[in-house]
Design a protein around this nucleic acid. Structure first.
Lengths: 194, 194
DNA sequence: GACGATACGGAACGCTCGCTCCGTTTGTCA
DNA sequence: TGACAAACGGAGCGAGCGTTCCGTATCGTC
């Protein structure tokens, strides 16, 4: 099935890893706007070497982000079997926000409405795992039923914006979490104000 | 008190207004990233003319945004005397979000943690008027008491991010609004999950 | 209508940055 | 160890854009 690989040279493998590591660090700190030359310098290689391994700066960014999102997917899958779906969902929800708020690359990728991030086809694995957690939490009544996965992912993006604006304010995250717990019966009182 | 003005020429006044109008439209549609040449072209003037009236592209942006934020301040002041502080607060809260979500310049300015927007000293007037609305809503128990003006402004920024990611989803705004209504007694149940 | 001050326009400058090109170096294998 | 392919590095190209400069046009006034 797989075509014979040309057997990459050892220095090429090493340099590719260095570029990825440098990019991960640089993108996390400064986001997509970090100049590619900076990444090359951090990696101890020339710009040409970066382009030998990644077709564009954006492809490098995507590779870095994707790796991280797939870590999240794995965590979500591991949690799916838990027997306290409510607690598991909220702790995962908050964990994603906490991790991403420390990583500008993730913030920018998830915040993008197009390209990479939640909405990209590459993020399908994440969406599936996340939707399972959400559905189970809704089945036990821990999360209001009038929301779907896209809604929750949009809320994650919103929470990231809040976090960037008011770093470390856990009571703001609680506002959203409390809003997610509200049942339709509780929420009746808000209808007139809207 | 005011120094004698050099009596601006008529064409200069006209061009300044044109530039402002073009900038308002262009920034609203494309945000700060719109090239200044585009604004000049839309206004029917040369780039040099823009710089005669505004010291930099950023100064022009700030002028446009500030005008808009002061409109909000005026609305907030007008609402301050209302005898239903809860309803007034939430309708203002949502109105700001609705208006800003249609205006990319506002989104970007408010989302900035530095520079212009909520946090700038130029936004002090807005902050004062907004804080009055919030305090009155909290006094009648319509909004939970463990939040201050900065918290609410951060939530506005978050709601704007949500709105950009999931346009027109009013039920997501309701999640936040419901979260704002939760009293500390209601919220006790969420403590274990955090 | 003529003159001086004011304002205009847009070519050009300088800078950043993604990306490419090619002469040189390095790894691999016989 | 020699030879060839693979990989490297970094100078340089080109595009985009904020800003400036200065020759020209226009306004206001006498």
């Amino acid at each position: 099935m797989t075509v014979d690989k040309p057997a990459q040279r050892a220095d090429a493998r090493r340099n590719r890893a260095r570029v990825l590591a440098a990019a991960e660090e640089a993108f996390a700190a400064e986001g997509l706007s970090v100049p590619l030359d900076d990444i090359a310098r951090r990696a101890g290689v020339g710009a040409g070497t970066v382009y030998r391994h990644f077709s564009s700066k954006e492809a490098l960014f995507q590779a870095v982000v994707l790796e991280r999102i797939e870590q999240f997917s794995q965590v979500a899958r591991d949690l799916a079997a838990s027997d306290s779906p409510g607690g598991v969902f909220f702790s995962f929800f908050e964990d994603v926000i906490k991790q991403a708020s420390l990583n500008r690359a993730l913030c920018e990728a998830l915040g993008e409405t197009t390209g990479f991030g939640f909405k990209a086809e590459t993020g399908a694995e994440f969406r599936t795992a996340f939707d399972v957690l959400l559905r189970r939490a809704q089945e036990v009544g821990a999360v209001r039923a009038d929301l779907d996965g896209d809604d929750l992912r949009a809320l994650i993006v919103g929470c990231l914006a809040v976090e960037r604006h008011a770093p470390g304010s856990r009571h703001l995250l609680r506002v959203v979490v409390d809003g997610l717990r509200v049942t339709s019966a509780d929420a009746l009182g808000s209808a007139d104000a809207l």
